[in-house]
Design a protein around this nucleic acid. Structure first.
Lengths: 334, 334
DNA sequence: CTGAAAGCGCTTACAG
DNA sequence: CTGAAAGCGCTTACAG
């Protein structure tokens, strides 16, 4: 028999179908012996509750939908590994609740889609991914304006319920460390024109802490390039040309930092001897380069847990604005 | 009104509920004017078909379940990026069919789970992930022995329907390139005791091509270590100690190769001048190191597409054994 | 503590 | 071409 139903289990256990349902759901007030008999029958038949029937009845699917926004035309291996790691930690938090995780990578109007909750497929939606895809964030902003509710990672702007790293603290930690190591000609490399606030927050925390020590950072807007790594590479070249005496760099993300690192090597600058470097994100690839990248590392487990908790909260997203703690992870470059 | 139903749409459009269903599903034999009226009413109400009701009726969920096996205790950012990239390409292939993707990361008996199809949540299941978690592969082998059907990436052994890279060709391409560049003291670094055949295939293709040119490779079993990168690091040290005159290395995976590269640098060997290096997988991190890692790169788009097609086939997995094409991607190390 | 029955929101065979 | 009705497999209020 393919796919036995609760009626089959009932027949085998010699009880009614309603009793099977109650016994298997762990409802109170089912005789222990009856429950055991039902469980045995279910096991023998290989019975598994039909989730569609169950969800239809309960009006809840115990599923989270996770949308990851990509750059148009980008292949999957080029997606910033930070988002994959975040996806993994969201999956862990989802699974810890006994929920399922539906994932969707979206990049253009061809595949923008936000109806996971409307169709009943998911109880809540989380949106993460590149800040650089404006069409995508616009699509979700419009969806939210039409009454759709969801939670984002990052700072896509005002209409969203968001959750993000403690970016200012991260900037301050980087600044304090560089100054304590005697660096004085210090640069910040990061997008100034991003529609999202994350990079601004990192720069502001960094600049404020430097300012308190009487230092004004050199600010470098990365030149246009197809991805953050290429931007970092170009930014390093530009920075060295304009400020050859720079002795420390804080990059707004690890992918930028890895590009900067390559740019410094190409220019024969020694890292960290000549120039110290700190990134932001804590991606694994930072440990694979030489010297290994020092970075501000958000607590990803906490991020996944907080995103899922916030998405599932129906009380007006009271936790919107919660900050994920960060720490300075010192490896080779600073 | 929260979540309008097809009855609400019917009332607004002045037709019966069955007509709404037919119109929205694109059934033939619905008057064009009626269809337009129904579509308009649905749009106005923000109606979306309930997927649970629909799936229950149709006995099909248009969803693929993807299980990614992890190392126990490993955090999400440590998962081999190859599997994240494969996940992304599977998501693309799934989405191209209009299917949903349910993902589950599993690492131990605490969260092993294979009932996605049995519960109706998914129409098919794909299993990918680390070859090193024997308990996990044993769990899925047992599940398959009990009649569960699914498709795997890699070569977990006989009971599975699998799909994998053209590993022998990859080994041959690496060998031919190294010999053509004049290398003669050539090593293979890779696990010999893996329960999976992938690494063996890469070694066999490599050794056969070298053999045809009268060269016998040095075979290095990586020492035990917590992950492939650490294994590669240790393997490089061991290889240099035992065969200081080695002039080329083919590593069975990119993460191993990145460890080897670091080990060579630590030993002050110049890459590729003194020693050439080729990895396998084409992960993004290989482009971030200096020099960038040359590698055998499987066609991930083809892999995702083939895995989904195979999982969805119900005709006895006739495509089992299909090989994903690979190409030699020459970057800096060889 | 257990059973008969209603109903979740669809899809489609059947009748017209 | 359209409508009334059955039924997918559950959960639970209601009755006993």
């Amino acid at each position: 028999m393919l796919r036995p139903t609760s009626f089959d289990v009932a027949e085998r256990a010699g009880v009614s179908q309603s009793t099977v349902s109650r016994a298997l759901r762990g409802s109170p007030g089912v005789n222990a012996e009856t429950r055991a008999r039902v469980s045995a029958a279910a096991r023998e038949l290989g019975y598994v509750v039909d989730r569609h029937a169950s969800s239809l009845r309960l009006k809840s699917s115990e599923t989270i939908a996770l949308v990851t926004i990509c750059r148009p035309g980008e292949d999957r291996s080029a997606i910033n590994p930070f988002y994959f790691a975040l996806l993994g930690s969201i999956a862990a938090a989802t699974s810890a609740r006994g929920f399922n995780l539906l994932v969707s990578f979206q990049e253009s109007h061809d595949n923008f889609r936000a109806d996971f909750v409307a169709s009943g497929l998911a109880d809540a939606m989380i949106v993460i991914g590149t800040t650089s895809n404006r069409a995508a964030w616009q699509f979700f902003a419009d969806a939210q304006a039409s009454g759709l509710d969801f939670t984002c990672w990052g700072s896509p702007g005002d209409p969203f319920h968001w959750m993000r790293s403690d970016n200012e603290v991260g900037g301050r930690l980087a600044a304090e460390h560089l100054v304590a190591r005697g660096r004085r000609r210090i640069a910040f490399v990061g997008p100034q024109q991003s529609p999202q606030r994350q990079f601004d927050e990192r720069r502001e925390g960094f600049a404020a802490a430097l300012g308190a020590r009487g230092i004004a950072p050199i600010i470098v807007e990365p030149p246009a390039a197809p991805d953050r790594h290429a931007q970092g590479l170009a930014a390093a070249a530009q920075l060295l040309a304009e400020h050859p005496d720079v002795d420390a760099i804080f990059a707004a993300s690890d992918m930028l930092a890895l590009g900067v690192l390559q740019g410094l090597k190409d220019a024969r600058r020694r890292v960290p001897t000549d120039i110290a470097l700190i990134g932001f994100d804590g991606i694994r690839a930072g440990t694979l380069v030489d010297p290994a990248l020092s970075t501000i590392e958000p607590d990803l487990d906490a991020a996944g847990e907080a995103l899922v908790a916030m998405a599932l909260e129906d009380t007006g997203h009271s936790r919107s604005g919660t900050r994920i703690p960060v720490r300075l992870s010192l490896r080779g470059t600073a």
